[in-house]
Amino acid sequence: MTRRRAAADDELYLTVGAYVVPQLLYAAARLGLADLLAAGPQGLEDMSRKTGSHAGTLARVLQALASVGVFARTRDGRWRLTRAAEPLLSDHPRSRRAAILFAGHEQHLAWGAVMHTVATGQPAFDHAFGHSLHQHLARDEAAMTAAEALRARRAGRRDPAVVDALDLGEARSIVDVGGGGGELLIAILSRRPGVCGVLVEAPHVAERTRARLQALGWGDRCEVVAADAREELPAGHDVYLLAEVVHCHEDVDASRILRNCRGPRVVVVERVLPAGGRASADRLADLHMLVMYGGRERTRREYAELFGAAGLRLRRVTPTTSWVSLLEAAPRVAR
């Protein structure tokens, strides 16, 4: 085999086998290797004993990760952290451990069943796990913890841009539909002392969020309601905010949620797909929502049609400095 042919084969393997590194990162995150090495270099046998892993296999995992810059071996044969390993730390400002844990298990298994989605148009997650992602999080404490950490990190990058772009006008009350841990609602209320908030979440999330808001001193201004937004939402408030909620649902359920927003203003915070068919992170995100939730990303026109089906009219779309835009709608007729 010529060197050129061998190099081409290596390049192809790196492309086809690109899933290996993420799964090795998942193994490292599950074992807590970075946290174990945070205090300093350690020997293989100690690491094996502390993590309950097979020493020979652990050595090969470390060597493979070292080949891409994650972890390194010291001159005396021990293993140490590298800068590239820092996102594996639980408490690092750039921590990606929660995302890696979720991607390495829930997302990995769901995408392994992608042909179910291709064949049926239904979420592969449900096929792989036997229930929906929302049901999975309600049942699996570890998955819920990882998902909450992942959501909080994502919110930390998204929410400042949303708050800067959001104009509440004369609103005195806001309903945050699917508001998670309340980060966005707190950020909004911090800038508007005269506004009160209602956060609506599924029961298994609402309980945690209620305790969290009480502990942070927001209990008097933030009511937490446990409800299924597809069935009912608190009525009569000034603004209904849905931050990356609608894209988790196909059109029928998304329309039901929007129709339950019974107030003068509805603000949907979502990624807006470009009208063209070019490949981009937006298009990949669209398929990811289908595989994981049965949902979808949408173009501006598709959002306008979705609002119309819910009795709403799209009034304006405001880009933000993050990946999302604010799509503001109002009832076609007074409710």
Rank of each mutant, 00 (worst) to 15 (best):
L327R: 03
E170L: 12
R4M: 06
D228W: 01
G197M: 01
S325K: 09
P264T: 10
M289K: 14
R316V: 09
R298A: 01
D46P: 00
D251T: 05
L36M: 14
I100N: 02
D164C: 00
A72Y: 10
E45H: 13
R158T: 12
A206E: 01
G294F: 09
V224T: 15
D251A: 12
C222P: 05
R332F: 02
V267Y: 01
V272R: 10
V70T: 03
G40W: 05
E302V: 00
F102R: 11
S67M: 05
G197T: 08
P203L: 07
A329D: 13
I186M: 15
L62F: 05
R158V: 15
R78P: 09
L150V: 01
A59H: 13
V317W: 05
A85G: 01
L31E: 09
R96I: 00
E231T: 08
A143K: 09
C222Q: 05
L62Q: 11
L89N: 14
A110R: 14
A147F: 09
R94F: 13
E45N: 02
G276F: 05
E244T: 13
V333Y: 02
R210P: 01
V205I: 11
A211V: 12
A142H: 13
H204A: 07
W111V: 09
R259P: 06
A206H: 12
E201R: 10
G294L: 05
E45F: 11
G219N: 06
H92C: 08
L150F: 03
A187M: 03
P41S: 02
L62S: 14
V245C: 11
E231A: 15
I188R: 04
A38S: 13
D9Y: 07
V333L: 12
V118Q: 08
V162P: 12
R4Q: 07
A309C: 12
R316P: 00
E270R: 04
L81V: 07
A64S: 14
A279K: 08
H136M: 06
C196S: 13
G69Y: 10
L12M: 14
E270I: 03
L258T: 06
D35G: 05
Q135S: 13
L185K: 09
I257G: 02
A64T: 12
A304S: 11
R212G: 12
M292V: 10
C196D: 15
G295I: 04
A98L: 06
A171Q: 09
A138T: 04
L185N: 03
L168W: 10
R212L: 11
T209A: 11
R97N: 02
